[in-house]
Amino acid sequence: MRQFIKQNKLLSFAVGFVALQIILALFAPILGFQDPYQQVMIQRMKAPNAVNLLGTDQLGRDVLARIVYGYRTSLVTCLTAVGLALLVGGMLGMLAAYYRGWFDRIVMRFMDILFAFPILLLAIGVIAVIGPSTWGAAIAIAIVYTPIFARLLRGPSLVIVESEYVMGAKAIGASDLRIIFSHLLPNLSSVILVQASLLLSAAILVEASLSFLGLGAQPPIPSLGLMLSEGRNFLLLSPWPAIFAGFAILFLSFGFNLLGDALRDTLDPRLRSDN
């Protein structure tokens, strides 16, 4: 263990940094934070102090508690979105590479068309249809990321499908499903891990943008993007909620980006961005 940390300093740091934030979000209710919905009207817009470590917002709610619960909203939304996109997009990409032919052409054409939309614009369009909510944001991000995962997994799958061990498996009569799940999928796991982490980093920013625009989580749900847009209106009276919420988004997104970069370096040195 100590040896591993020593050899993979960046990865260890990234894992620790992300884990810390996930633990905070996961165990928020038992870690003794204040109630994020509790309004104390005589304590509005306070600067950081001993009772409210990060101050209070325009309704006298504890900013620290709202940030920790905002992490929960953000992580649940983005993990759902990236998970769904990985499931649908990744599956389509693998199947397209495996079956080739017309299936490949039709699926990838459709993915190209979805990919042609600017990311945030497509997400906004989806929400215009299904309505603004936390789940609306999750579905919108999932749809936007589906073609990205399909493209990301199709490429390496094409190479694996042509490999000798897949030919061998086919020769001894392994079923398509068996080849996909026990040969293709395990060999894609490092690509999946790296890309899921990098895309989570970007998804956190998209989710924050959507809630900032009023198209994601709705008040009074604690949400980082919402804190920014609410805090903006009271900026000159009390900049604290907006400033801390921004740092929270930055740390969360930065953590997953660093994790993705470090995973890439560790899992597959050939993919390293710099030699």
Binding site: S201, L205, A208, S209, F212, L228, G231, R232, L235, L236, P239, A242, I243, A245, G246, I249, L250, S253, F254, N257, L258, D261
Partner: peptide, 20 residues
Amino acid sequence: IAGLTIPSFWLGIVAIFLVS
């Protein structure tokens, strides 16, 4: 890396605050 992960709207808000 930080520049990649800074939400641009937050940067904008902080900039407006500092300028004002």
